[in-house]
Design a protein around this nucleic acid. Structure first.
Lengths: 114, 114
DNA sequence: CTTAATACATAGACAAGCTAAATATAAAGG
DNA sequence: CCTTTATATTTAGCTTGTCTATGTATTAAG
């Protein structure tokens, strides 16, 4: 089972990130884990793709990130926890519709066998 | 109904071109027409995207292009007519499978409502 | 002879995802 | 202590596909 190529993902990654955050706020690594888990081994997302996507989404007001309280008893550096804004929630709904349209259009062209 | 953005298309365009050629050989403009027709107004493909894609596909041995015989009584310059190679046909089949997997994975992440 | 229609070509911009490496923090282990 | 290990974020630079915009070529029509 070949991996999903980066180019195929392009333009859809932000939708995936928004989707991952519907399950509740999460920091970058956690988002990565959620997506790879749901992606069943074929979706391999890289930090170098995710973090810039998070910055874009935050800049666009779709998500809001805050540094986690430092007093957590765990290994590792501070984490930035993101949550969906209401704008992001609306964007996600719209993005789902657009994706559906994209799939429908592709399907029409590739034939019903697809 | 918003158009399908270029980024959403990225990585899927070559599959679309292969698909268009299943209906028989065609020159660039004809491919464009076939795709836009099947794309129902939401898929707006540009020459600047299509022709490079054709060159890539030909270089990869997926399609074969030949200059049309000049004695055609019609307006316009010579046309380069492309047809699927057997390699291209196999590639198309594989690409359909990959697209299906992509859609399935996206669907799993976006939720069944998608 | 000009205009319109058709078709191909391509330079350059742009953007998103990838590679790879650096940095930071703190628990765990000896 | 000091090193190792695990966790998490950051970013520079590369690659590549699509788009914008423009240019060229050819022939029918007026």
């Amino acid at each position: 089972m070949p991996d999903i190529r980066g180019d195929a993902l392009r333009g859809h990654l932000e939708t995936l990130v928004l989707s991952a955050l519907r399950r509740g706020e999460a920091h970058g690594f956690e988002i990565l884990r959620r997506l790879e888990e749901a992606g069943s081994q074929v979706l391999k997302l890289k930090e170098g793709s995710l973090y810039p996507a998070l910055y874009r989404l935050e800049a666009a007001g779709m998500i809001k990130g805050e540094w986690e309280d430092g007093a957590t008893a765990r290994r590792g550096p501070r984490r930035r926890v993101y949550r969906l804004t209401s704008k992001g929630r609306r964007r996600f709904t719209a993005a789902c519709g657009e994706f559906q349209q994209f799939v429908a259009t592709m399907g029409r062209i590739l034939g019903t066998a697809v």
